[in-house]
Amino acid sequence: MADSDGKIDRRTFVGNIVRAGGAIGIGGAAVALAAAKGRLGDAVWQIDPDKCIACGNCATYCVLDPSAVECVHNFAMCGYCDLCTGYFEPEPNALNSGAENQLCPTGAIKRKFIEDPYFEYTIDKSLCIGCGKCVKGCSAFGNGSLFLQVDHDRCAGCNECSIAVACSSRAFTRVAAGDPYLLKGREGNG
């Protein structure tokens, strides 16, 4: 989505880099974005996806309601599975989008047919509360392409993040505001 100046907004930007598989090129563009916001050199909170165990605390410990933590999807790591274990209940009645078959309690994951037998799964950020249930399902059987991140469009930037205090896995870490996402599959991050 471009704003009136023709610039890509931050939400779309993050969506795009995650869609593209994340890693390549994020550095320069994110630094430019942060510089534009005057936050270069600042640190912000982020989740290390390789330490997070999707315990659920991210959904309820944020000072914001709903939480600033959301699920993101690294499409480059995804298997585009018919039976996505991040999307379906462990024992679905059928592989369709019937509510009773879906794992996400808020219906935030959308399933789209690509070509036989592949499906694409995208997160509707407006519905995701960062509970991590899909992250567990994806990691239990699949490639771990679904994971949690603090959405810096929404994060209030608390000095002491209340989720970080409640995170038993010590998955919260400070990262440069100019490069605020820790994407799976990225060099040095998995």
Partner: peptide
């Protein structure tokens, strides 16, 4: 505040 008592999310959020 230290999260030891769990997330408090309802059962439907358990995996």
């Amino acid at each position: 505040p230290f999260g030891e008592q769990g997330s408090g999310l309802p059962e439907s959020f358990d995996y």
